[in-house]
Design a protein around this nucleic acid. Structure first.
Lengths: 144, 144
DNA sequence: CTAATAATGGATAAATTTATCCATTATTTA
DNA sequence: TAAATAATGGATAAATTTATCCATTATTAG
């Protein structure tokens, strides 16, 4: 459904959000340990999220990754997915056709439309912060 | 959402079904032309569908690919997807966790469950034959 | 100012997916 | 039986995604 990079990105941002709610900055290593991902690869993904202003990053000692109040209020799953995987999941044709649309539909156009809209609605209505709260409560998990 | 191989597989099987409804066998080249896919790669996918008994293939002159009555009645989108991409799309965790389940859920377990079940229901209730009928009527398209 | 820390960015490498090539096998027709 | 046809299967190659390595930059504390 999502690329591995996107999966890592979502898990990482939920962890960073959780720690930010506790007023903690986290290092790359903290993130990689928390979500069991390859550190160097995760680094690239966090750079992307950082450049898209979805998370903050600071260099040097006391540095690390974090999310501020505004980011915690605004960043949704859809924001992360869009930053990493782009819009393909929203607009792409289920069968890979370039010009699939209502007036020249692929054979599963209508069927997929329903699913995609459902998915979109879900991603756009889910704040990373909300997921972080459940994680902090121990209701959900980021590894295995 | 699906692999490229699976997209080709679905499009190919809809085309083969359409032609079979018109009592026509089609060659590899016919298929590749109809769905605008690389022929040799498509060949591998058709072999897989053929070995899974979702389509028939015959060698030699007058040979080609086809679907018989039984196959036309039984093959659904879910059948094709399962044969090519396996069950990951049904059972896999949205965030890539190995042991994500109701008692140890990932942060988006419940949200994804709804979407996946919706998708599953759709794939399992859609006969390739039905899609082929619409294609034959000129209501849908397999290229571009 | 120096040493230590942590993210950054560029270059590579490994793994996987997608795609191609070609010799072989099976089948049909003449 | 020979020639032509069409799928098959194995080997390889190209492209993309995932992953690693390391030197550099920015920042902080002493």
């Amino acid at each position: 459904m999502f690329s591995k990079a996107c999966e890592y990105g979502i898990r990482a941002s939920i962890f960073i959000a959780e720690q930010s709610l506790l007023d903690c900055k986290v290092s790359l290593k903290d993130v990689a340990d928390a979500i069991e991902s390859p550190a160097a690869y995760t680094s690239k993904i966090l750079q992307k999220l950082s450049k898209s202003k979805l998370i903050n990053s600071d260099k040097g000692p006391t540095g690390g990754f974090s999310m501020d109040k505004t980011q915690l209020e605004q960043v949704k799953l859809s924001t992360i997915v869009y930053a990493i995987d782009g819009e393909a999941i929203y607009n792409g044709c289920g069968l890979g056709l370039k010009n699939c649309n209502a007036s020249k539909p692929c054979p599963v156009h209508d069927q997929f439309k329903v699913i995609r809209e459902e998915l979109k609605k879900m991603l756009e209505s889910t704040l990373v912060k909300t997921l972080a709260v459940d994680l902090e409560k121990g209701l959900t998990f980021l590894k295995r």
